[in-house]
């Protein structure tokens, strides 16, 4: 097995079929690629073969969006088995999911829905994270959500909730800086205080993405749309985040209004430069199949 070395200051982009040709050709600006697990939970076919080709040259992270780890019900074992097969096949250096839920009453809601930050929700999420880590045989990272509403039942902050989850399960955290910015603006909490409450040793990856500002009368609401360049305010928060929490692999996400590969690669390069300027990079060894 060839071994590729990736620095913690490496930056990657979300891999879409639109970018397959560029990824196969090779890019010095992109340090790794990330895919949504569910798009590759297929029995066979060209999509998997293309990912195998790209994986030969680049580290890969696998980001789940449908495990619904925050559901009151137990995590779907069939989904976990399929995810485990994917992880075994592609040997990603990061596997991540969300502090959110999508399943209830036998239905799947195609969104990352918010949790009340309660002891009971923490128990459910921790149980499902532990089960996922057990089936995959490895640590996973859990991403902070972007939220648009808050529950009366919450008796801790989101940062306290995530810190408790790390303590209970040994999982790591994927800090989505855009999500943090969105939620802090929508709910009026201090993003800097949030960063102070996170266990810095648990941070394993950053996400950056664009969002949309939607005015409602006198109130603006920010929506996590992944359809635009990273906002300048998010870049600033990212810079502060890196100086507080250190350098980690960072992903530029774009799911809609996809620009050319070069545009995303330039954003990845900017993220990498910010990290390299903020702190000396450490090194992480990543196996490449």
């Amino acid at each position: 097995m060839e071994t590729r070395i990736a620095t913690t200051a490496t930056a990657g982009i979300g891999l879409k079929p639109t970018y397959y040709a560029d990824a196969l050709q090779g890019s010095s600006e992109v340090g790794f690629y990330e895919v949504h697990a569910e798009n590759y939970l297929l029995p066979g076919g060209p999509r998997l073969r293309t990912l195998e080709q790209i994986r030969r040259d680049y580290p890969l992270s696998i980001h789940g969006v449908a495990a619904s780890l925050g559901s009151a019900v137990a995590v779907d074992e069939g989904h976990l088995r399929a995810l485990a097969e994917l992880v075994t096949r592609f040997e990603p250096f990061i596997v991540s999911e969300h502090a959110a839920w999508s399943r209830e009453g036998g239905r799947y809601h195609a969104d990352l829905l918010p949790l009340p930050y309660t002891r009971e929700a923490l128990d459910c999420l921790a149980r499902n994270v532990e089960r996922t880590q057990q089936v995959l045989g490895r640590q996973i990272l859990i991403e902070n959500p972007s939220t648009y509403l808050e529950f009366r039942a919450s008796d801790m902050s989101e940062a306290e909730f995530l810190a408790a989850l790390v303590s209970r399960t040994g999982c790591g955290l994927l800090l989505d800086v855009n999500n943090l910015y969105i939620s802090s603006c929508n709910h009026g909490f201090d993003a800097h205080a949030y960063l102070e409450q996170l266990p810095d040793s648990a941070i394993g990856q950053y996400h950056l993405a664009g969002h949309t500002l939607e005015p409602h009368g006198q109130v603006d609401i920010r929506i996590d749309t992944h359809d635009a360049p990273v906002a300048e305010a998010v870049w600033q928060l990212f810079q502060e985040t890196v100086s507080r929490l250190g350098s980690h692999p960072v992903l530029i996400e774009r799911d809609d209004h996809l620009p050319t590969f070069d545009v995303l690669a330039a954003e990845a390069l900017r993220a990498q430069s910010l990290m390299q300027a903020a702190v000396p990079s450490g090194r992480v060894q990543v196996d490449v199949a």
Binding site: S71, A72, V73, W101, E104, G105, R107, H109, D111, L113, L115, P116, T118, E120, A121, C124, L149, E150, F151, R152, A153, S154, H187, G188, H216, Q218, V219, I221
Partner: peptide
């Protein structure tokens, strides 16, 4: 949590009142 999520599901399907007493009022009056 199970009941909260069931009510959230109902809200997604169109029941505007399903979450009414479960949410904090928005700070800006949204």
């Amino acid at each position: 949590l199970a009941e909260t999520q069931a009510r959230f599901g109902a809200a997604l399907r169109g029941d505007d009142d399903a979450l009414k007493d479960l949410l904090c009022p928005h700070r800006g009056g949204l």
